[in-house]
Design a protein around this nucleic acid. Structure first.
Lengths: 110, 110
DNA sequence: CACACATATTCGTTTTTGCTAATATGATAG
DNA sequence: CTATCATATTAGCAAAAACGAATATGTGTG
């Protein structure tokens, strides 16, 4: 049994709960990339990506490493990588149920 | 390697990314509970809890079961339970780094 | 030092989320 | 069938998140 600060946990999970951020994580899952590479891979503005990278970093999901004028971002560690995989596995399981939900997009309280 | 619809995944994770919803999950982790029980356990209004339960249900994290005039909520399945545990384990690992983050609360873009 | 390139930050706006209070639905008991 | 208890839904408002555009910082190069 592990004890975790709830606020910390929520912040961490917040990092995962956005489409663009998820794509970024997927994008750098296998190897570190510079911001420009990520911007190219994704279809978003440099400013937007930079903001999400900042969020992901603050949430503890990724780390940045400077090398010359580039900054390379990658997943924080192997555990984060494992967690992302596990989430995918669990989700494959419950996917159908979730997909049939309606309230999420319109309903303002979710 | 598992393929998952990104929107589905984000929706699922969205369910986890709120303090109250996390507390609800924790609260019903070991056994199913009625809404009233949950409301009593947590410090929030019935309406508020009901809305979060609705969200959690839509996100695929919990299921409800009617019995008489009560509705019992519980985690969807063992995998969800396992996932919550795994998240705690990974978090224990990166907790300190995350805790030292400043931008999250004030910064509007994260 | 000035210029170019890579990345971060700020500002203003729009959209989404969360909350409370009030009301509605639904089930059971009498 | 109506009164009561359990739960859900709606409406309106306040707060937070997301975004684009513009600007700032920082790093290497000539």
């Amino acid at each position: 049994m592990v004890t975790i600060d709830l606020d910390t946990k929520v912040k961490f999970l917040h990092g995962l709960s956005h489409k663009t951020r998820n794509q970024i994580l997927e994008c750098i899952k296998d190897r570190e990339k510079t911001v420009s590479e990520i911007v190219t891979d994704m279809k978003a503005s440099q400013s937007n990506i930079s903001q999400h990278l900042s969020c992901l970093k603050d949430c503890g999901l990724i780390v940045g490493r400077q090398e010359g004028k580039y900054i390379y971002y990658s997943l924080r560690n192997q555990q984060v990588r494992d967690l992302l995989s596990m989430i995918d596995i669990v989700l494959a399981d419950v996917q159908n149920d979730i997909a049939s939900c309606k309230n999420f997009v319109q309903g303002g309280d979710c």
